[in-house]
Each structure stands twice: as C-alpha cells, then as structure tokens.
Amino acid sequence: MSEDAQEQTHGEEAVVANGADAAHGADAAAAHGADAAHGAEGGLQIHPMDQFIVEPLFGDGPISFYTITNVTLWMMLAIVGVFILMVMGSRGRAIVPSRAQSVAELTYGFIRKMVEDVAGKDALAFFPYIMTLFLFIVMANFLGLLPMSFTTTSHIAVTAILAMAVFLTVTVVGFVKNGAGFLGLFWVSSAPMALRPILAIIELISYFVRPVSHSIRLAGNVMAGHAVIKVFAGFAGVLGLGAVAPVVAITAVYGLEVLVAFIQAYVFTILTCVYLRDALHPSH
C-alpha cells in the first residue's frame, strides 16, 4: 500500500517535473527568439539563474535520486579531472618529476602542509578526507568556469552536505577523542567567571552556525559570480556588436571568478582544518 502511495506521488512528481520542463522549454524558446530578433517581448531576456537548473540528461522524466542529470555529468567530470591530476600525473613516479607530476606533488604538499600546520600532526589521519574535499571543490569550481557548464558547487544542497559532513566528523571526533572534555571548547577558561556562561552560549551558537556559514559561503560566492557573468552576457546579447562594456565587464568578472574558484576551495579546506583542530585540541 505504501508502495502504491509512493507510486502515486511519483506520478504526481512526474507531472510536476514535466510541467516545469515544458515551461522551461518554452522559456528557452523565448530566449532563443529574443536572441535572434529581440523584438517580440521588448528586449531584455536575461535568465541569470537558468544555468543552475538541474535537468535530466536523457529524456524529460522526473528527477528521482538516481536520475542521470547534469549534476551527474559534471560531478563525473570532476572525478575525471581529479583522476587525471592526481593519478595520471603521478604515473611516472619519477625522482625528478615531470611537469604533471610536479603539479600533483605541489597539490599534495599544499594540502598536507595545511593540515599539518593548521590542525596538527595528529590530524594527518584525515588528510585523504580533506584532500578529497579540496580537490572536489576546486575541480567543480574550475569546471564550472567553462562556458555552458554546470557548476555543482553553486548548489546549496551540495555544499550543505559537504559542510554537514565536516560538522558531523568534527563533532564525533571531538567527543571520541576528548569525551566530555570536548565541551571545554565552549567554556572559555581564560575569561572571567562571570562572563563564562554568556561566552558559552555565544560559542555554542557560533559552533552550530559553522556548517551554515561554511556551506553558504562557498555556494553563494560561486553562484553570485556566475549569475553576474550571465547578467552581463545578457546585456551583451541585447547590445549586439557594440557590447564593448559588457564584454570588458565579463572579462573582469571572469578573472575574479578564477580567483574565487580557488580561494573558496582553499577557504573551505582551511576552515575544515580549523574545525578539526578544535576537535582534536579543544582547549582554548
């Protein structure tokens, strides 16, 4: 019976998705029309957020959890990118590294040193995990900078899961390693006694806000930059051949986005290391 019900909802979902898709199709057609001769609707057809729509790659079916969508495609490409960078790059195992091997080694050294310096030597057990986070985010960010691509890290669902995973790992590790002593993280022993309960509340709130800021920082930065580029691209489309200013703006924003793509991955990773340090050494 419950299966029946599920079937029912599925059917409904299909209808919903189909409807959305149809609407989207019409939208796309309209945008195309505007591109060709932007007269009919009076010009400005800018859909900066359309690039973030999750669509099935094959057919127009409903999006269930296993549907192969553009999310799947670009995540698989991220895997391929990581594989080429880290596995193919290090294939030679040369004492004097090739250029590709140097890049792989630099990446390895960069993150390893970060984990060691920020989180401490005993955090090196988490090095593969942190490396995974960094490489996935950096790959997804840079793949998202390709024209016509889909940026998986611009979705709050993705970054929230990454951040929640970090949050849960840190919390579990904190309690496993320190037991109840982990709660000392919230008890600022260097502050005057009267202030400590207040500080404890603040610390507690800030602790639970961490995954929120951790995830929204990444998704927000990536999404905003891409949307801005799309807006300028819309201006360029309206202005046609005279679109010097939008093209200059797009170039500038794109340069900024290249920076952001790396910096946000770096920030996400180093914050993970900072949180991990709190879990391993909770004393203030």
Partner: peptide
C-alpha cells in the same frame, strides 16, 4: 528569476550523486 538552488525536488538527486562522487574521489585518492 527564481533560485533553482531552492528547488527541493532536485536535492535527493544532487545529494546522491555528490555522495557517489565524494566516495569515488576518496577511494581514488586514498
């Protein structure tokens, strides 16, 4: 101009493929 990021119907799909991707990358790396 809504936000596809807040279209919760796509969340299970994204989360599923994210977990797959992270696990694969983790295995490749480790």
């Amino acid at each position: 101009p809504g936000m596809p990021q807040l279209d919760f119907s796509t969340f299970p799909n994204q989360i599923f493929w994210l977990v797959v991707t992270i696990v694969v990358i983790y295995l490749i790396l480790s």
